[in-house]
Simulated scan of single mutants.
Amino acid sequence: MPNVLIVGAGAGLSASLARCFRKAGYSVSLAARNTVKLQELADEIGAQLFTCDVCEKSDVHTLFEELDNHNFTLDTVIYNAGAYTRGPITEIDTDLTKETLMINSFGALLVAQQAAKRMLKNGRGAMLFTGASAGVKGFSQSAPFAMGKFALRGLCQSLARELAPQNVHVAHFIIDGLIYSAGRGAPYDDTAITLNPDEIAKTYLYVSEQERSAWTWELELRTNTESF
C-alpha cells in the first residue's frame, strides 16, 4: 500500500485530499499542530495522526523519525500548511508577518529537506505543495502573504530542477480563487464562484501518479468565473 503524508492538515482541502488518496488505496498520515480536530477524519479513513509545528525544526525531524519508526515509505508528501495576514504596509503586524513567512515557506523547506533525504534513498517519490495566486502576483495590502507564497514557488522551482533527475517529482499548485467551505459563510459557501476541494484533490492525485516522461512541475486551478 503506498503512503501519503499530508502536512498542515485541517478540515478543508486537506480533508478532501485525505479522502481522495485513501479511496485510491493509499495509507494516509496527517500532521498538524492541533490533531484533536482531525480525530473524526482519522477515524473515518483509518489515518495516522502526528503532532507537528512546521515552524519548529525539531518538530519536523521528530515527525519524519516517527514515520520511519512506523516503517512508512513515503511515496507522496503534500505540504498544505498556510497562514495569512494583510494590511497597509504602515500598519502590518510584523510578528504575524514573521509567522506567515515561516509557515508558508520556511516550514515547507524543513519538510522538503526531510522528505528528500528519504525519497532520494528510496530512488523515488513525489512532493506536492499548495500555493496561491499571490505567489505569482502580489496584491495590494497583502505583502506578507505574497512574500511567503513567492518564496514557496521559488523553493518548488528549485527543488523540481534539483530532484527530478533523481526520480523525485516536485509540483507546485497555484490555487487561484476561494475554496468552497460551507461553514465559513459567504462568499466561501457559494458553489458558483468557489473551487470544489474534492475536485482539487483529484488533480493532486493525478499529478502525484504521473509517469516521469511527462511530469507537471506547476499548474493553476481556478473556477470558470475567476479572472486571470
Results as ranks from 00 to 15, higher is better:
Val4Ala: 03
Asn196Asp: 15
His172Ser: 12
Cys20Glu: 15
Ile45Glu: 10
Arg184His: 06
Arg184Pro: 02
Leu67Asp: 02
Leu96His: 07
Gln39Glu: 15
Ala214Arg: 11
Ser14His: 01
Gly185Leu: 04
Gln210Thr: 05
Tyr206Gln: 12
Ala9Gly: 12
Arg212Gly: 05
Glu209Ala: 10
Ile92Gln: 15
Ala192Pro: 01
Asp198Gln: 08
Ala134Lys: 00
Leu152Ser: 08
His172Val: 04
Asn71Leu: 08
Met119Phe: 03
Gln48Glu: 13
Val168Trp: 07
Gln48Ser: 14
Leu17Lys: 05
Gln48Met: 09
Ile193Pro: 00
Asp190Gln: 14
Phe145Ser: 01
His172Tyr: 12
Thr76Asp: 08
Glu66Trp: 05
Arg22Gln: 13
Ile92Met: 12
Leu178Val: 11
Thr194Cys: 01
Ile45Tyr: 05
Thr223Tyr: 00
Phe106Asp: 03
Leu17Gly: 10
Phe173His: 07
Leu63Glu: 01
Glu56Gln: 13
Pro144His: 12
Thr62Trp: 01
Gly10Arg: 06
Thr194Tyr: 00
Val36Gln: 10
Gln141Trp: 07
Ser133Leu: 00
Val36Pro: 02
Thr225Asn: 03
Gly125Ala: 09
Asp189Pro: 09
His172Cys: 04
Ala15Thr: 13
Ala24Asn: 13
Ala9Asp: 08
Phe150Gly: 06
Thr194Trp: 00
Asn224Glu: 13
Arg118His: 07
Ala151Met: 00
Gln113Arg: 05
Asn3Tyr: 09
Glu99Asp: 03
Thr76Gln: 09
Asn104His: 08
Arg184Ile: 07
Gly177His: 00
Leu17Arg: 06
Leu163Ser: 11
Val170Gln: 02
Ser140Thr: 15
Lys23Leu: 10
Gln210Arg: 14
Ile89Ser: 12
Pro187Asn: 04
Thr73Ala: 03
Phe106Gln: 04
Ile92Asp: 05
Ile193Arg: 08
Phe21Met: 09
Leu159Thr: 06
Ala11Ser: 15
Thr51Ile: 06
Phe139Cys: 02
Ser29Val: 02
Leu67Ile: 13
Phe50Ser: 11
Leu74His: 00
Ala18Asp: 04
Ala126Ile: 04
Glu211Leu: 08
Glu218Pro: 08
Ser181Pro: 05
Arg222Trp: 04
Ala24Ser: 14
Ala11Leu: 07
Leu49Gly: 10
Leu30Asn: 06
Ala214Met: 11
Pro88Ala: 13
Cys156Gly: 09
Ala112Val: 04
Trp217Pro: 02
Cys52Asp: 02
Tyr180Ile: 07
Arg184Leu: 14
His169Phe: 06
Ile92Lys: 06
Ala15Asn: 03
Phe145Glu: 01
Leu195Tyr: 02
Gly183His: 05
Thr130Ile: 10
Leu41Trp: 08
Gly107Val: 01
Arg153Tyr: 03
Phe50Gln: 12
Phe64Arg: 06
Val36Glu: 14
Ile175Phe: 04
Ser16Asn: 07
Leu101Pro: 00
Leu205Gln: 07
Ser158Lys: 06
Glu211Thr: 08
